[in-house]
Design a protein around this nucleic acid. Structure first.
Lengths: 143, 143
DNA sequence: CCGATTGCTTCGAGACTCGAAGCATTTCCG
DNA sequence: CGGAAATGCTTCGAGTCTCGAAGCAATCGG
């Protein structure tokens, strides 16, 4: 009867995603952003190379026109800038501005303070992170 | 540094919700539904008393006008019917039709087949379900 | 060199979400 | 009882999000 556990997990995953979003709603609104634009901002890690639009569509599970739309709003808000990838002039990379870096850090910090997941203790979080990582990469290097 | 685990958990939760949705997309499309209407259908447990609109808004984390809109589509699709709660004639309950019950079961079954969570074995799923349940109900009867 | 492909944008349409306003019913309180 | 207030839901209008189709610039393949 693993079916019952599986359904419970999928439902809990959905519910917790919604609850985290609900609690983050006023945080992102305070920065004049929406959930969609905040997720895009979150997806740009300032410690890695600026991602191309294609990479961003994969991270956000959306298509190119959608990302173009969302990116435009971040540009207008002064949080990111578009730049042409010198290695392939067709490709545009999304670069965080100083304010973008600051706003991103604030949104992430406040979201993590409010998410229901924060109720778990360190050991539980580590175990949960381990299990979720396994789901994300099930092969584990196997055949 | 539990912060790292917490962020990883929130990101993984988001990512897995999106992946589950992506893999369910063609399943719900096959039934002429969208993700929003399918979630509403999922939220109606045929083994419990038919939920009122208010209960449904809580389950779906949406407001009344939105639910009214989604419910209308399920009614037009012949999957649910509206009924007046005899105990409070202001309240409308959402009742699954026979086809609604059948389509709901199919969508859930096929979604659970395809979700990445299905890669876990029984013990892992049970542990994951336990942790997520704890996040959903953190108090545990405490003060 | 030129057709095919890739990466992105714009455009137009459809779906989703929400606040405001309105209606029916119930509850509250004198 | 009677009427004001509250509750549950719907409709309406506007705004946001999402996507397919079409188009442009740059690169790749022969």
């Amino acid at each position: 009867m693993g079916q019952t556990d599986l359904e419970a997990v999928v439902r809990a995953n959905h519910e917790l995603f919604m609850r985290t979003g609900d609690r983050a709603a006023d945080v992102v609104a305070r920065h004049r952003l929406t959930l969609a634009t905040a997720q895009a901002l979150w997806a740009i890690d300032p410690e890695e190379a600026p991602p191309s639009m294609t990479v961003m569509t994969e991270r956000l599970h959306c298509n190119a026109p959608n990302l173009s739309f969302v990116t435009k709003q971040l540009v207008e808000r002064g949080l990111v800038e578009r730049a042409t990838d010198p290695h392939d002039r067709r490709s545009r990379v999304v670069v965080l501005t100083d304010e973008g870096r600051r706003v991103r850090a604030e949104i992430i910090a406040e979201t993590l303070e409010r998410t229901p997941f924060a109720a778990l203790d360190g050991a539980e979080l580590r175990e949960l992170a381990r299990l979720l990582a396994k789901v994300l990469a099930p092969a584990g290097g196997g055949a």
